[in-house]
Design a protein around this nucleic acid. Structure first.
Lengths: 400, 400
DNA sequence: GAAAGTTAGTAAAGTCAGTGGAGAAAGTAA
DNA sequence: TTACTTTCTCCACTGACTTTACTAACTTTC
């Protein structure tokens, strides 16, 4: 049944709107809030006082007068509460305190040496519990937000599938919540980062954002009308598993010619190896001290920047395949902006320009006239910021 | 700025929830509504009385007693108001009165003989105006809802592009609204029909529905969490223009190997022609009296039902291409149900079974475990029902 | 078949969030 | 200093929901 309305609902709604304004437009006076929201000054004052009692906002300095009494500027207090962000990747667990502006205050990292379902769950739980032991102000903790690669059912708090970590239908959210007694969220990493882009990125004012993560695999997070789109049970956005070649090789997922098999790092690596085996000369070998096992994304990127012909040709080919996938995405979602996160190419504007041109070439004009394709703008802590974004969305976004 | 809350908002919200219950679960007693919504009996009684005054609901017969006073059952009155639905296709304009249950009460059809932007707008306006002349109870008309193929920006009331009708950035909604003085909606046909499936179809209880329209072109409508997803400016769901073959022929849209060029009727027709030219024997020729110009979708379908080898092989190939497109859709949207509307194959369960198997074969198991692929369940008036659905969604769906 | 128990619906009083107006506080402008 | 402006607060008021008490109407029980 849908949530019905009462006086409490009005108050919560108005308070959440006012808090949102203070967060995003603060410091701001009560009077300006009233003008913006068209709420009465009385209502604004009462809501602000409640927020001050909660510790979420604070009266600050007096602002400039515009011909009358100087306004009292109200500030958002990002450090009043914090979130424990946990990022599980295929190789390690990162855990951190983040404030309400998703700023990392303290960060720890642990390699994952264990494998298998129970092992990982136990290891994660132990890591989180020991981290919590070291915290003094647990009463200010909003909750624990965990992000993990793979298919995640955020509504049910379930890791549905992760092949690298060998996870299948793991109820991680409830397990951690029960062990710690602290409110816990669980979501997919790409989803979380997409939401962080929406909340904290340079392009946060766009309504329809698609974030694409390139690396070991290819994933995406889709933000539509300010909210994450997760699909029926968390599987939406498996961008790596759309087919770009109907007669391509069979992928683990069952599909033929999946994009992931053309643009992920393993695909690139395999192309490099093939070329080297065939005797192709490349700077990559020198950078890797003639040990093919040492070739990694960083080395490939260095060679690319030095205009190594092999690296260049593989990068171009990869970009072209990638663009084909993007064209499909654009025709189906008609987004305002596509944000690309890929370590290897981070900051490589040439790559993005090439992609942009390719997409424009193969997409219906109406879709590209005002489409932006840019690199991610979150800093190095993007994963932890993602985790925080999931919790913050749930806390701050009022919905009936 | 977001809409703030006041007493009016509560009332509107609660009334809209109550009306929705009466529509979908009526006839129902005030007492049962109170139990369902957890609103107080007083509030329910007062809201129901307001709705009775509006004419939208009516007190009906007394229900069965369950050990006490017999309940008064409240009924929804679908005929209390009506919508003027207008469906513009590439060949004709249909106009009809539909009640609040999207039942067609009166229907007229006019062929489109004019071409070009201004002609069509004038013709549409004239058709609607003359239709309105004949109506006696215009005060009960909620509004005019127009659906049209092509790319439509529903928010701005704009036909952005329609190649067949040669329309480009036509402000049809405002034009009609000004000429008639009646509230007007405008949307894309596939979007509208998808919404009608959500509101009135057999699978209306599913939350994520994708409706796919196969015919002259290939379009789709996407319903996510009970709402249409339109993308940045109305272009979402251009399913016909996703590439299924990177080395395929160039499409009008700019892309290579678009799905539309493999599965639409013109593509099938062209395959039939090629086969016939090459001397392939087929029942299709007899059904068309040996005149290739007479071959249409109906004839092709008849041949298919009679197990004509050529029709069968072309249908299989088409279905296989179509399934490839669906796999992409499933990996990106993770829907609960995909509904297919295609006149030629309407009721052809074999086709659907084949598609279902193909999709299952090439899709990640987690996505297909509970995925349904079915034929559309709306009747012959599906287009007009779509138009009505757009207006009804706006009227009945309360959102802050 | 009357009394007791149940269920449905209504009326009156109470609660509480937002509003509007009066007024205090604290500035600016001449 | 006086007049005006802007910011903020206090207080009575509005109105939608809830609670409580009540009536209406039916079923069950003895």
């Amino acid at each position: 049944m849908r949530k019905t309305g009462d006086l409490k609902l009005i108050q919560e709604l108005n308070q959440s709107i006012i808090l949102d304004i203070i967060r995003k437009s603060g410091p701001i006076s009560r009077s300006d809030i009233a003008k913006k929201t068209k709420l009465s000054p009385t209502t604004v004052a009462s809501a602000v006082n409640d927020l001050i009692n909660d510790g979420m906002v604070m009266d600050g300095e007096a602002g400039q007068s515009s011909g009358g009494r100087r306004p009292i500027l109200v500030n958002f207090v990002p450090d009043s509460k914090y979130i424990i962000g946990v990022s599980i990747t295929n190789t390690n667990i990162m855990i951190a305190n983040l404030n309400l502006d998703a700023e990392v205050k303290e960060k720890k990292q642990f390699p994952i040496e264990l494998y298998g379902q129970n092992d990982l769950v136990d290891f994660t739980a132990a890591t989180i519990e020991s981290y919590i032991q070291g915290l003094s102000d647990i009463e200010n903790c909003i909750g624990i937000s965990i992000i993990v690669p793979g298919i995640v059912d955020a509504v049910r708090g379930l890791i549905r599938f992760n092949s690298k970590l060998q996870l299948h239908d793991v109820k991680l959210r409830d397990i951690i919540q029960e062990k710690t007694g602290i409110k816990t969220w669980l979501d997919n990493d790409a989803n979380a980062i997409a939401l962080a882009e929406k909340q904290f990125g340079d392009y946060r004012d766009r309504d329809n954002i698609i974030y694409i993560q390139l690396g070991e695999g290819v994933g995406s997070g889709i933000v539509l009308n300010n909210n994450l789109f997760r699909g029926r049970n968390g599987g939406a956005g498996e961008f790596g598993h759309i087919s770009i070649n109907r007669s391509g090789t069979k992928c683990d997922c069952g599909n033929l010619g999946c994009l992931e098999n053309y643009v992920s790092w393993p695909a690139i690596y395999s192309k490099v190896l093939t070329a080297i085996t065939r005797g192709k000369r490349t700077m990559i070998m020198e950078l890797a001290n003639h040990d093919v096992r040492k070739i990694d994304q960083r080395i490939f990127f260095s060679a690319l920047q030095e205009n190594d012909p092999l690296a260049k040709s593989i990068a171009d080919e990869t970009a072209s395949y990638f663009a084909t996938g993007l064209v499909t995405l654009v025709h189906l979602f008609n987004p305002e902006i596509i944000l690309i996160g890929w370590d290897t190419l981070y900051g490589n504007t040439e790559f993005v320009s090439f992609i942009r041109e390719e997409v424009k070439k193969y997409t219906f004009d109406l879709f590209t006239d005002d489409l932006e394709i840019e690199l991610t703008t979150l800093g190095e802590d993007y994963q932890l910021m993602g985790a925080a974004a999931i919790a913050l969305q749930d806390i701050f976004d009022f919905s009936i």
